[in-house]
Each structure stands twice: as structure tokens, then as C-alpha cells.
Amino acid sequence: MSKFPYSDLVLEHFKHPRNVGEIEDPDGKAMEGSPACGDMVSVHIKVDEATKTISDIKFQSYGCASNIATGSIITELAKGKTLEEAKKITWKQASEALGGLPPIKAHCSVLAVEGLRSAIRDYEERHGLVAEKVPTTREVVEKRLKKVMNPLSGLDLVRTKLVSEIEVKDGKVKVVIDLPPGHQFANAIREEVVEKIEPLWDVEEVEVVFTE
């Protein structure tokens, strides 16, 4: 393999992203990320009512090369799939379909996968297919933290055992990360954790603490 971090497939999708744009009157849509985190992906889907399959899908990206390439590949992977199948598409599958993404870029590219799932959830919510809101618990927080990537390895924070404590109390969530506060990635991880936990409907405050 060459020293260049991106595979030819990543570059191909970066240069010529597929299914770019918006769908007029979409059945489901979602926007993940924010300009603050440096990456945003929007996903629009059209769903065939009878078969519950994704008949059309479009994405837009404000982000780096891996973000754009993942957005592109995810539309190709999801098109024609049933909602249930599409929901199960993982970052790993997207990454494999692109010939591999660098671990440090996992956090930028996972957004596209999130975008697809959120667009499906949006469709389901609009069509009354989801259960009621569940209160945030330790488990819900942990599940969300599994979507925050550890830039050191490209695997999530929970799996790499960086989360040493989670506390949920009266709308306040405290997450203790087992890294020194001066660590190279401390600020980046803090921002991402806040970004993942804050949108939960009953969370008012997120505190991220680093250990010495």
C-alpha cells in the first residue's frame, strides 16, 4: 500500500461524488454534524410505501475527503435496500466498500452513516412507526458514546475503554474520559462527546472530565 492515506476508491468518490443534492419533497431527511465540528452531512430519502425500500437517496457534504466519500458510498449502498436493511449499514461496511479509511478519519466519516439512519428515523417518526421517547439513562449515553471515535485507533471510545465513568442525574450528564486534559486529542474528543449527548431530548448539560 502506498503511504498516501486514501485508497483510490476514496479518491474516486471524493472527486466524483454520486447522488449529490437534495430531493424535492423527501419522505425522510436528516442533517448530521455542525459547522463547529467541521463536518456536516445531509441525507434525503424517497421511500417506496409498499415495499419499504429506499427508491432514491441524495446527500450533501460540508466536510473533508473521507466525509464526502463516505456520503457518496452510503447512498450507493442504501439505494434499493429496505429500511431495515439500510438501518444496519455500518461505518465498517462503508469503509470496506471504499477500500478502507484511515482510523483518524473515522469520526468524520461516521457522520454519513448517522445521517442515513437519522433520515430513516425521520421517515419512521413521520409515519408513526416509532415508539415513545425514552428517558436518558447511563445505557443510552453509553450507546451514543459508541459513536464517538477514538482518533488514536479509529475504534469507538467505549470499545477502547476510554470512558471510565458515566453519570446521569436531573438532566445533567457527566462523562469521565481516561485521558490527561493536555492530551493531543482531548479537546476534539470533548467536542464530539458534547455533540453526541447534548441533542438527547431530556439532557440539559453535558460535562466532560479528563483524568490526570
Binding site: K15, D39, G63, C64, I104, H107, C108, Q184, F185, N187
Partner: peptide, 19 residues
Amino acid sequence: MRGFAVSTGSACFSRSLEA
């Protein structure tokens, strides 16, 4: 890809992933 080398203040470009 077009042969130009420049630098950016973007988080994605930095070693600490910070803007």
C-alpha cells in the same frame, strides 16, 4: 491532485484534530 501544496487551519488537517 492538481499539483499545488498549500495548508489549512481546518481541524481535519491538524494533528490534534483541532481547528
